[in-house]
């Protein structure tokens, strides 16, 4: 009975630690893979160029235009959320969420660029971002995820 009681008491703690470790390992692994992918894609020669400029360059042969967009919903892992919950007690920089949003923005932009490339475009102008928190079904489930949408107008050269 004594050992059972101890187990009953320790179980939630052990579960939390297990989730933390899983979250830490998988979160780190996924993040590293993701950044490798992002950097490789961004620096790929011939990648579509993006400019958050209101007006396209004036040119002799006016290009075709098309609306392009890319979006991604990304979720926080248990470990990062745990740090964040602690962080929110004392305030300050939420390091763990910064990289998450950075990844989401860049991934969304890459998807937009991929769409533009598929249309044969070389540049995307007037790039805008839209970020929205996608909440879970209930407050208890604490599904913390963020959607980032990137959109712009692709210029498809005629020549």
């Amino acid at each position: 009975m004594g050992s059972l009681l101890t187990l009953q008491f320790l179980f939630p703690l052990l579960l939390a630690i297990l989730l933390l470790v899983t979250g830490y390992i998988s979160g780190r692994y996924l993040e590293r893979k993701h950044y490798e992918h992002i950097i490789a894609e961004e620096t790929r020669p011939g990648q579509v160029m993006v400019f958050p400029l209101r007006l396209p360059p004036p040119s002799l042969s006016p290009p075709e235009t098309a609306l392009v967009m890319g979006s991604v919903v990304i979720s926080v892992d248990y470990f990062k959320r745990f740090i964040a919950t602690l962080r929110m007690l004392v305030g300050g920089r939420l390091n763990s969420y910064e990289s998450l949003l950075d990844r989401a923005r860049r991934e969304a932009l890459l998807r937009m660029r991929a769409e533009a490339e598929a249309m044969g475009a070389k540049e995307v102008f007037n790039v805008k971002y839209e970020t929205a928190v996608i909440s879970g079904r209930s407050a208890q489930s604490q599904v913390g995820s963020v959607e980032v949408l990137a959109y712009g107008t692709a210029l498809i050269g005629k020549d």
């Binding site: 989730l19 979250g23 998988s26 996924l30 892992d77 248990y78 996608i134 995820s145």
Partner: peptide, 15 residues
């Protein structure tokens, strides 16, 4: 998604 929330990463279904 709640499983994904332990591991982190993209929620393809939502996207």
């Amino acid at each position: 998604a709640s499983f994904k929330n332990v591991f982190g990463g993209e929620l393809r279904g939502y996207t």
